[in-house]
Design a protein around this nucleic acid. Structure first.
Lengths: 145, 145
DNA sequence: CCTTGTTAGTTACATTTTCAACTATTACCG
DNA sequence: CGGTAATAGTTGAAAATGTAACTAACAAGG
């Protein structure tokens, strides 16, 4: 329990951060340069492209992200004409959000690149370790918010 | 290579981010509430506590962090009296940075908590998976900046 | 219906991060 | 040496994020 036993390079939050940052940068450059998107915008695009129309609240839950972030990302995507919103009759506070054709094209483009990127990075790891890694990450990402 | 094959919940940068955020929050609260530190400040404290006196540039390299972030964190730690700076005779642009006694106490305190926290989280994982996880993270964190 | 409470989403403001100069010092090279 | 280039670190403005308060719509109980 002494501080001497502590090793920063073995501290999980630090490792996760370093890995996330190092890893995110390359891909971030792509959606930024190509579509002028921020990370949260890419995430919203991604959720809608993958799961179909959703409300903002559903995206908040799925992405485990703060509602102001989602709100702003939705507004930005709408302004860029990647997204359409349609107020729900059943609850006029919410809107059904879905990708425009341009949004779908952007999603298809980026998803393809993401897939390749993921395959390339994961390919550097031993297959068993690769699977274990993602399982562990999914476990760590769950439930502590 | 089609977008349909892409699964966000299997995309490494996304998983890394989710895991890092979920995981970082809990510990962040501690150094923030207890010492009013920001994450970069905690990191600088940590580097100095662990590796002894360094220059700002060395911290930048070790932490793979931007120099303005480090510069401001150093200034903040100095103001909080956790850190002492001493201009180098060999190169008067740089300074030797080291923790004050108060800084060392804060480090010892936080390092102990960090160690426990890490053990607790890692303990939830299968031992083999736990080791594989950190190895993989170290691999991913390397070299891509 | 009318009051009270809750929820979806937005907006305003403060904090933090990033980006682009800028200063001071050192290194290199004719 | 003297001038140009490179490096350590800082600063100011712009962008992004987080926090809190807000609006609008719904829900439920009397």
């Amino acid at each position: 329990m002494e501080a001497e036993d502590f090793d920063l390079n073995d501290f999980l939050p630090y490792l996760l951060n370093q890995a996330a940052e190092a890893n995110g940068r390359a891909f971030q450059k792509i959606y930024k340069d190509r579509y002028g998107m921020l990370r949260t915008e890419w995430r919203v695009l991604c959720h809608l492209g993958q799961f179909g129309p959703m409300t903002a609240r559903e995206i908040v839950e799925a992405a485990q992200s703060h509602k102001t972030k989602i709100s702003r990302a939705v507004a930005a995507l709408e302004q860029k004409r990647f997204l359409l919103r349609e107020t729900l009759d059943s609850d006029r506070r919410s809107a059904k959000l879905q990708l425009s054709p341009a949004g779908q094209r952007a999603y298809a483009d980026l998803a393809g690149i993401a897939r390749d990127y993921d395959a390339q990075v994961m390919g550097q790891l031993d297959p068993a370790a690769a699977k274990a890694l993602k399982d562990a990450l999914r476990h760590l990402a769950r439930g502590k918010r």
